[in-house]
């Protein structure tokens, strides 16, 4: 699974699952902490659609954790002040890179994909209730 995809699933739908995974398996993987969870900023670059150029809209607060095993670095970055999730994500990133505990991760991610599909379906339906029905206006 692409990193973009699994980070999205854990951050949006699986914060508790990520933290539980870290608590359960951290003793099974050797790692050193490069940097403890710490707050910082990410500058957001956007593409505008008038001239199709780039500009910076502003920064967002993030929490970052870095760990490593040898030369392999596990990185956990998440919006806002969230040390526990950042720490758990750095561990999961390291696991994916080292290709360990993949089965356990894939089980969790499969459940999160289901959770996501239920959420998106329900949220989409809720939003579409506010869609204007012009046919109805003409009746």
């Amino acid at each position: 699974m692409e990193r973009k995809r699994w980070t999205s699933l854990f951050i949006k739908y699986g914060e508790q699952e990520a933290i539980e995974f870290f608590n359960t398996y951290q003793s099974q993987v050797d790692f050193d902490i490069i940097s403890e969870p710490a707050e910082g900023l990410t500058m957001i670059k956007v593409r505008e659609h008038a001239e199709n150029s780039l500009f910076y809209i502003g920064e967002m607060l993030v929490t970052e954790t870095k760990i490593r095993q040898g030369q392999t670095v596990g990185l956990g970055v998440v919006k806002g002040s969230n040390a526990k999730l950042s720490e758990a994500l750095s561990f999961i990133d390291l696991c994916f890179k080292l290709e360990v505990l993949l089965e356990a991760l894939e089980d969790i991610l499969a459940k999160l994909e289901l959770k996501e599909s239920v959420f998106i379906k329900s949220r989409t339906n809720e939003i579409l209730k506010t869609k204007v029905d012009f046919d109805m206006m003409a009746e």
Binding site: L41, T42, M43, K45, V46, R47, E59
Partner: peptide, 13 residues
Amino acid sequence: TLPRLHYSTVTNT
């Protein structure tokens, strides 16, 4: 007071 850790990839609306 905070360090800038990252720049995002190009964000497209």
